[in-house]
Amino acid sequence: MTTPPTYAVASAVSPSADPRARFHDLLAAEWIKLRSLRSTWIAYGATALAVIAFNVGTAYDTYTYWPARGAADRADFVRAGIPLQEAFTANAAMVMMLALAAIGAVAITAEYSTGTIRTTFAAVPARRSVMAAKTAVVAAVATVFGALVAGASFGLTQAILDERGAGVSIGHPGAWRVVTASALLAPVAALTGMAIGSLIRHTSATMVGAVVLLLVLPLAFTDGRHWSAVAGHATLFQAWSRLVEVGAPRTEFPWTTGGAWTAYALWALAAAALAITSAHRRDQ
């Protein structure tokens, strides 16, 4: 009698789904993207030199023309808070805002212009997670950059002024606020550039939008009317100006440093939320 052949029955094993990308892996990927671009470091380096040069140049002018100042002018120099004004000037703040907004914008518009964003979203369909990682990396690098530039500007300017006996230390009233506000101007501007870039997705148009939003808009509001003053206080540049101001504000509608810090926080949160959510709501 013939024995029927025995067949081995293979158990049906469902293929395991691909593991979802962990957030720290996305952070590492975005960091690799950022640091592998030589243009990124050139942009950061050029911005740092420009910002520090504006501040140091102002302090050096004071050093050069110090002997021409009268005795009363010299005595009021520190009392009026001028050393802190020269630690980080308005021109330097404008340069930092525009440059960091451009760097933040390019972090997203470059991927859209080259089409690599499609590859990124194909590899990681969780678009919000990708954009959150990109936002976190850009904000972290910009914060470190801002801290280094603001700290270097303060140290160099006060060292120059100290040669005339007019410099102040970091423990001077208001000094920490000036340095911190100037340092945090970098990440907030970078996040703003990212938010505009995520909406417009074209580099040149994004730059125009950043100039209008960060520089032109604050100039459109005056302190002559209450509504205009309040709207102006909500802009990023005027918030920075209030934080680096020494003493009580000399305006008809003054506001507090707490209000300026609130404006900083709202700008950062709104920009980050917009950058993270915009990619999820639009096709590529």
Rank of each mutant, 00 (worst) to 15 (best):
P5S: 00
P5F: 05
P5R: 04
Y7Q: 10
Y7H: 12
A8C: 09
A8I: 13
V9R: 00
A10F: 13
A12P: 10
A12T: 15
V13A: 10
P15A: 15
P15F: 14
S16F: 13
S16T: 14
A17D: 15
A17I: 15
D18K: 14
R20Q: 15
A21S: 14
F23A: 04
F23S: 05
H24Y: 14
L26D: 01
L26N: 02
L26Y: 01
L27F: 04
E30H: 01
E30C: 01
E30P: 03
E30W: 05
W31I: 08
K33Q: 05
L34R: 04
L34V: 06
L34G: 03
R35N: 08
S36R: 08
L37Y: 08
R38Y: 11
R38W: 13
S39K: 09
T40G: 03
W41D: 09
I42E: 11
A43Q: 03
Y44W: 06
Y44K: 03
G45K: 04
A46R: 04
T47G: 02
T47L: 06
A48V: 05
A48I: 04
L49V: 14
A50G: 08
V51D: 05
V51K: 00
I52C: 02
A53T: 10
F54E: 05
N55Q: 02
V56S: 05
G57I: 03
G57C: 07
T58L: 12
T58D: 14
A59D: 02
D61A: 15
D61W: 14
T62V: 15
Y63L: 06
T64P: 07
P67K: 06
P67Y: 00
A68N: 14
R69G: 11
A71T: 14
A71N: 11
A72C: 11
A72H: 13
R74N: 15
A75T: 13
A75N: 12
F77R: 09
V78W: 10
V78K: 11
V78D: 08
R79Q: 13
R79D: 12
G81Q: 07
I82C: 09
E86H: 13
T89H: 06
N91F: 12
A92C: 03
A93W: 00
M94K: 11
M96W: 00
M97E: 04
M97T: 01
M97D: 00
A99L: 02
A99N: 01
A101F: 04
A102E: 06
I103A: 00
I103Q: 06
I103P: 00
G104D: 02
A105V: 01
V106E: 07
V106N: 08
I108Q: 05
A110H: 11
A110C: 07
Y112F: 09
S113P: 02
T114N: 06
T114M: 05
G115M: 03
G115E: 01
G115S: 02
T116S: 13
I117P: 02
I117M: 05
T119Q: 15
T120E: 07
T120A: 07
F121D: 06
A122G: 08
A123W: 07
A123I: 10
P125W: 02
R127T: 08
R127Q: 07
R127D: 07
R127N: 07
R128Y: 15
S129I: 10
S129D: 15
V130W: 05
M131A: 03
M131Y: 02
